[in-house]
Design a protein around this nucleic acid. Structure first.
Length: 108
DNA sequence: AGCCTGACTCGGA
DNA sequence: CTCCGAGCCAGGC
């Protein structure tokens, strides 16, 4: 299922690194499905959220793009800061371009 | 079957 | 850098 593929891909993102929704969709072979990646993460329930580092996925400009009710922007920011990823008051990842991780160049 | 929503992105101005 | 329009399509009804 699409959701499972997305969750699996997101699990590959290393700690203290971030990715864009489009990075995940491109890795899955569908560069134009960034939105569906968001849909899949939005479908996470509280329990599966513990096994998927969903907070490491932000939009292509480095902003936290979550709109969910169960968890919010503050929650995502807290999780990122817990792994030493700085997020400013506008919910943008600081130094996003250098923290952005590539699914293809797996060096870290 | 169709219809609607949405954690997105890109290109052009 | 910002703003806007169009494209994208899974999943729930």
């Amino acid at each position: 299922m699409w959701r499972d593929a997305v969750w699996h891909a997101v699990r590959l993102i290393p700690r203290s690194r971030v990715c864009a929704y489009s990075d995940v969709s491109a890795f899955l072979g569908h560069p134009a499905r960034a939105r569906q990646v968001g849909n899949a993460l939005g479908a996470l329930d509280l329990r599966s959220a513990e096994t998927v580092p969903w907070h490491r996925v932000v939009n292509v400009r480095g902003f936290i793009s979550i709109r969910g009710q169960i968890v919010g922007k503050d929650r995502q920011r807290a999780l990122l800061q817990a792994e030493e990823v700085e997020v400013d008051s506008a919910y943008q990842v600081v130094a996003f371009s250098s923290l952005r991780w590539s699914f293809f160049g797996r060096a870290g």
